[in-house]
Design a protein around this nucleic acid. Structure first.
Length: 218
DNA sequence: CCCCAGGCGTCCA
DNA sequence: TGGACGCATGGG
């Protein structure tokens, strides 16, 4: 089975099994950007608490967060974990947004420029940058995360040492360039990961993908 | 008690 | 260039 066919088959099965995921969970591009930083190595459940705190404090704006001392911000986002680290990272992101003339102006930059601007922020790496490019700006870039890596490895589609950009190329070289497809695909991989492919479930039994790439039928 | 979660920067060989 | 480590809260 060719790679492009296998990736399509995986997508079709995930969509049939789970249905559309409606990502990203967030009410605005700005909230998506904050969530992308807050969810670094952290369960979304904890991120929701931090975002709820920000909303309750009326801090879900560039202006409010810009004026807020980093120590205060850290306390408010404490449930998301690494709060001191993430408070500074959010501040760094806010500084970029202001420097670029606001959220809309930043997100309207050409995709490659936007990506480089985000990566220039201390505390924003490939996954966080790509999450913002795809889910806040709506550009067709494929987001890779720990679940994606684990799923691809466990199904023998990539080697264990396959890095972020190799996995990203795997998807982007073998799928139509379609932001809606990339959006749903990544969300479905995370859904699959949460339910069937956590570290504590090494067998991946009952996984809806278990025969993809093999010759046998279901 | 343990392990783990939608990463990233730093340090060191 | 790449592997180990710190960062930290909350759930199972």
């Amino acid at each position: 089975m060719r790679t492009s066919e296998a990736l399509r088959e995986i997508y079709n099965r995930l969509l049939a099994h789970f249905g559309p995921q409606g990502w990203w969970p967030g009410d605005s591009p700005f909230e998506v950007m904050l969530g992308a930083v807050l969810t670094q190595n952290t369960s979304w459940q904890n991120v929701e608490k931090a975002i709820a705190n920000l909303k309750n404090e009326g801090l879900l704006s560039v202006e409010a967060l810009s004026l807020l001392p980093v120590e205060k911000l850290a306390e408010i986002i404490r449930p998301a974990g690494y709060h001191n680290l993430k408070a500074q990272r959010l501040k760094n992101l806010i500084a970029l947004i202001e420097d670029q003339g606001g959220v809309a102006a930043l997100l309207n930059q050409p995709t490659a420029v936007l990506r480089e601007l985000l990566l220039s922020v201390k505390g924003i790496g490939p996954e966080t940058a790509d999450s913002i490019v795809l889910y806040a700006a709506g550009r067709s870039i494929f987001v890779i995360d720990a679940y994606t890596h684990r799923i691809l490895c466990r199904h023998g589609l990539v080697a264990e040492d396959c890095d972020y950009f190799q996995m990203q190329e795997l998807f982007m070289d073998n799928l139509a360039e379609d932001a809606a497809l990339f959006n749903e695909y990544h969300a479905l991989l995370v859904r699959l990961g949460k339910e069937f492919c956590r570290k504590s479930q090494p067998k991946c039994e009952c996984c809806p993908l278990k025969t993809v790439g093999e010759q046998q039928e279901d």
